[in-house]
């Protein structure tokens, strides 16, 4: 095995094989049969079109028929679709079959030419371009050259500037959520405040910050605010004292927005006490303050400091002490 040179005697090209006529070229009966086949295919296409029209006009959209493998199917939708598929498919099949069996099929040889232009043409081209460029006199007219460059530079700015109003500046929006000290945690959906005693050990609740009566939540708030409440036995925690102080009677609250790419992390496994994000499978250990134990997420889920208010309802003791959700350049993660 080695690199081989091309300077060897190669085997001769025997040339294109002899033309073999088709059955339809030789036998009138085959020709007739091919013609009939094409006609049948066109006919099937027509049947498809009729099926489509029939299904559109006469088949109600609440009729269901059972078809093996596929299950209960909507007859209207299926009729339209199969009709359309037939009408298109067989039209194409007919045309191709026609071309294959009956149209002249001798192969034709075209010749190629090299794409490179002739030397004269190239020389002419170079001369034309040179003359043209010389006529512009950019080399001589320094003032024009400089002012042109300056104006072109400035000219590029307005188009970019015009896109400025696409959206507001980020400011501190990504760092903030609606949680404030004393905000009640309410069920999502339902907006009911939650007593600590409402949660049994092993239970989980999806919550949002309470909002004033009659106001609407913005989706951009729901993209940052959701909090997952989980109740464990207090002795199950292996938290630092600060983090443990943020829990309340075994109830711990985490941002439900993944610290990786912002999906809702809500797959809570009660026995292992792990939280799993279904998007990229980052796994967080609830007992250790949502520490990442598997997957691509690099930071634990932010923990919300919770307590109860005078009426015994769960509230945030303080806002989140770090931005929730995916990382961004301006985020101070230290």
């Amino acid at each position: 095995m080695s690199a081989v040179s091309n300077e060897i005697e190669i085997i001769d090209d025997p040339g294109a094989p002899a033309h073999v006529p088709r059955a339809a070229d030789l036998n009138p009966r085959s020709e007739k049969r091919a013609e009939q086949q094409v006609a049948i295919l066109f006919g099937l296409s027509g049947v498809g079109s009729l099926l489509l029209i029939y299904s559109y006009v006469f088949v109600a959209d609440d009729i269901f028929i059972f078809i093996p493998i596929m299950g209960n199917q909507n007859a209207h939708q299926l009729g339209l679709g199969i009709g359309m598929a037939m009408s298109l498919f067989f039209l194409g099949m007919a045309a191709v079959h026609w071309a294959k069996t009956l149209m002249p099929e001798t192969e034709i040889v075209n010749h190629r030419h090299e794409f490179r232009s002739s030397d004269e043409d190239r020389a002419d081209f170079v001369k034309t371009v040179k003359d043209g460029v010389a006529g512009v006199q950019l080399g001589r007219r320094k003032l024009i050259k400089r002012s042109l460059a300056a104006s072109l530079g400035l000219f590029a700015l307005p188009p970019v500037l015009l896109l400025r109003d696409l959206g507001p500046l980020p400011k501190k929006q990504l760092e903030m959520t609606s949680w404030k000290a004393g905000t009640r945690l309410v069920t999502d959906p339902g907006n009911r405040p939650i007593l600590a005693s409402d949660l049994e050990v092993g239970s989980v609740v999806q919550t949002l910050p309470a909002i004033a009566e009659g106001t609407e939540r913005l989706l951009s708030d729901i993209a940052k605010d959701p909090v997952l409440l989980i109740r464990l036995r207090p002795e199950d925690f292996q938290l630092t004292p600060e983090k443990f102080a943020m829990t309340h009677e075994g109830i711990i609250a985490f941002s439900k927005i993944c610290s990786h790419m912002g999906c809702a992390v809500a797959l809570y496994e009660q026995q292992t006490k792990h939280l799993l994000c279904p998007c990229h499978q980052s796994t967080f250990d609830v007992t250790r303050g949502a520490k990442v134990i598997f997957g691509p997420a690099a930071r634990p889920l932010p923990q919300l400091d919770i307590t109860v208010d005078a009426e015994g309802y769960l509230v945030a003791r303080a806002p989140f002490n770090e931005p929730v959700g995916p990382s961004f350049w301006e985020r101070n993660s230290q």
């Binding site: 069920t187 009911r192 939650i194 007593l195 005693s197 409402d198 949660l199 049994e200 050990v201 092993g202 239970s203 989980v204 609740v205 989980i230 809570y268 496994e269 009660q270 026995q271 292992t272």
Partner: peptide
Amino acid sequence: QSMPVFSDKT
């Protein structure tokens, strides 16, 4: 098993 409890209150 893995499933958490959904309390009647929440």
